[in-house]
């Protein structure tokens, strides 16, 4: 951890496991994921589509959609366990201590309520303010996120704003009660490329000013490189590597991360397909035994197909890879043998 390990982390996720019971057995979508976020820190979370990034975020804010459920592990906010709280107590934490921003600003706002009404109701849910005070705070927030003529625009409806403006409103909504942590799940993916950089810059500036920590889920390696303090790389529901942004981007230890960082597009260029690595991430129904990455890994050895690696120190970062264990990967495998 960069922000000093002696301090209590703002958020701590320990051995998180998210499952979906299905007719053909239980799917494990998030498997033994552990990480922490320090106050004011920005943790980038990257990985291919389906790696379990959104589910991890949903588990943290307590909004997994049934039948998905937390089947193991714990989530701690400022040292207090929050994954097993009753709905009503968790509701009071959402919005107040953990804010959230979702992918699509066009659909995140209720089309039938003015943005002012949505801001005021959120403020009054969490803060003991009168209607007039809440409205004043709402206008201040709109100004802060860069909505021009906030005093008059506050009474407008979502359809009267452009996509970028709506995402600014969404950010204002997430900041209503000045939460300590914001979980931002691909906050710019749905936006025009030209606007993405502005929204990211805004989010970064506001969180620095308010001292808000961010868990920033994104496909965009450029965004991560510019914004994050540390990066977590997810693969098939597991953490592959986690460490300071410079080391993960420039000097990755895990073979998957290295493939991922093979070519970093410049900021704003969207790339669904992050990797230059052959093959695709396994389905949840067919996760290989041992290291989930072994069928695609150029470095795989015999140990990789039978035994699952935990996160272990690998240079400056920590990686789930046998290359960094004292015994190594065992005898090297040919691709064909690994796939068999």
């Amino acid at each position: 951890m960069t922000a000093g390990s002696n301090q209590t982390p703002l958020l701590e996720v320990r051995n998180l496991r998210v499952e979906f019971p299905t007719r053909r057995g239980t799917l494990v979508a998030v498997d033994d994921v552990s990480f922490s976020i320090a106050p004011g820190e920005v943790l980038g979370v990257v990985g291919e589509s389906g790696a379990g990034k959104s589910l991890t975020g949903a588990a943290i804010i307590g909004l997994l959609e049934p039948p998905g459920r937390i089947a193991g592990g714990e989530v701690l906010l400022e040292g207090e366990r929050i994954d097993n709280l009753p709905y009503e107590r968790m509701r009071r934490i959402r919005g107040a201590r953990i804010g959230a921003i979702f992918q699509d600003p066009l659909t995140s706002l209720n089309p039938l309520y003015s943005i002012g009404r949505q801001l005021v109701e959120t403020i009054q849910t969490h803060l003991p303010l009168s209607a007039a005070e809440a409205r004043k705070r709402a206008i201040d927030l709109l100004k802060e996120v860069g909505i021009p003529a906030a005093e008059s625009r506050i009474d407008h409806y979502p359809h009267q704003f452009s996509g970028g403006m709506r995402q600014r409103v969404v950010i204002a909504l997430a900041l209503c009660a000045n939460p300590r942590l914001i979980v931002a799940d691909e906050p710019t993916t749905a936006l025009d490329v030209s606007i993405q950089a502005q929204i990211i810059a805004l989010l970064k500036r506001l969180c620095r000013e308010h001292g808000t920590a961010v868990m920033l889920v994104t496909h965009d390696m450029g965004v991560i490189a510019e914004t994050a303090d540390r990066v977590a790389v997810m693969y098939a529901g597991r953490l592959a590597e986690i460490g300071p942004v410079r080391d993960v981007v420039k000097n990755a230890s895990h073979p998957y991360t290295r493939g991922l960082m093979g070519s970093i597009p410049s900021l704003g260029v969207r790339s669904e397909r992050l990797t230059q690595i052959d093959g695709a991430m396994p389905r949840l129904t067919a996760i290989p035994t041992g290291c989930a990455f072994n069928p695609r890994c150029p470095e795989a050895g015999q140990r990789c197909t039978v035994e699952r690696p935990d996160l272990m120190p690998a240079g400056v970062t920590r990686a789930a890879c046998w290359l960094y264990a004292p015994g190594g990967v065992g005898a090297a495998l040919t691709r064909e043998a690994a796939n068999a």
Binding site: I61, L63, R91, R94, G95, A100, F102, L109, E121, A174
Partner: peptide, 8 residues
């Protein structure tokens, strides 16, 4: 979903 995330 977002209304829930806002804690309403």
């Amino acid at each position: 979903k977002f209304a829930r995330a806002r804690g309403l």
